[in-house]
Nucleic acid binder design. Structure first.
Lengths: 162, 162
DNA sequence: ATCGATTAATTCGTATACGATCTTTTCTAA
DNA sequence: TTAGAAAAGATCGTATACGAATTAATCGAT
């Protein structure tokens, strides 16, 4: 394969691998959480709130990398389930402040034990995981900082291409 | 932080980083493909078909890491759009054979140019990308081979935990 | 002080993605 | 050869996720 073609494969492989691994994680957690009603994205949200302390919906959005409109219905459900607290900021009534409730901490802790057990069974080397984490975070930061300049236009469909 | 707590953070960070990066890729491609009707998952499917040649829906499912029922409606739409061919296998009428059509190749090629330009603008080092790709693929393989043994059970909600 | 611009969150419509279930086809064992 | 098991897709209901448009609150320039 030519250098150019090989370079092509690098980026396609990267997004491809991330894509597939994301869904593998999803199924992994789905299996772990079974029909408990608890899910992978909710686990991520609890993690973020636990690590970053009370924060607004917008802050959570930036932290987990989801749009605010995706999180809005989810945090409502989590609040209704008693996992988190969800109150308007008295300082700025536009903002909604989110924080872990004791029950949310309990659930996170229990979920964590399950995830931990499953993860350890994989036998991945810590140093590589650490390096990979750093690189993934860097890639994400660059992606978010550098939106694509060139835009795609669907090619015309030639009659002979059926 | 204790060693145990640090080890905890490794795995949570890994799934967390993959989660966030996946969505960053998604938005990146969404921006590149704009309102062309073409999407990130469809790009992945075209890539897989281009790389792996004609294959059944089940094979595609295994390759891209999505369930067959998720792909089924998507490949129908892509077929209706003229990107791929979708025919029953005469050898085994249960199977559906998928292959790139010339128009699909054209679209893939054009999309690739856009993605390539955007990717190169990130300035990521090739060797690290290569190493990361290998590790992501390895992690995915282990995840799929090793489903979680311990199952999560939602803790009871104590009255005093609000 | 007030009106327009900005910001934060929500709502709405649509595309992905999953598990569960169903249909059709093929395989297998007697 | 034929009835039951297994396999491959498709369908259905639900949960995520996005962009676009909306609502409500705050900021800012005059």
């Amino acid at each position: 394969m030519s250098d150019a073609a090989n370079k092509d494969r690098l980026n396609t492989l990267m997004c491809y691998n991330v894509y597939a691994l994301h869904h593998a994680f999803g199924r992994f957690y789905q299996a772990a959480f079974a029909d408990s009603g608890f899910t992978y994205p909710k686990y991520i949200v609890l993690l973020a709130l636990n690590e970053g302390g009370p924060m607004s919906l917008g802050d959570l959005s930036a932290k987990v990398g989801l749009e605010a409109n995706s999180l809005s219905p989810m945090v409502k459900k989590m609040s209704a389930f008693g996992l988190i607290e969800r109150v308007r900021d008295p300082e700025d009534e536009r903002r909604v402040l989110l924080s872990l409730k004791p029950y949310g901490e309990t659930v996170l802790h229990e979920a964590h034990k399950v995830v931990e057990a499953g993860w350890n069974a994989l036998g991945l080397p810590d140093t590589t995981v650490e390096m990979t984490n750093a690189f993934l975070a860097d890639t994400r930061a660059r992606l978010e900082k550098t939106p694509p300049k060139v835009k795609f236009k669907v090619p015309d469909r030639e009659p002979d291409q059926g």
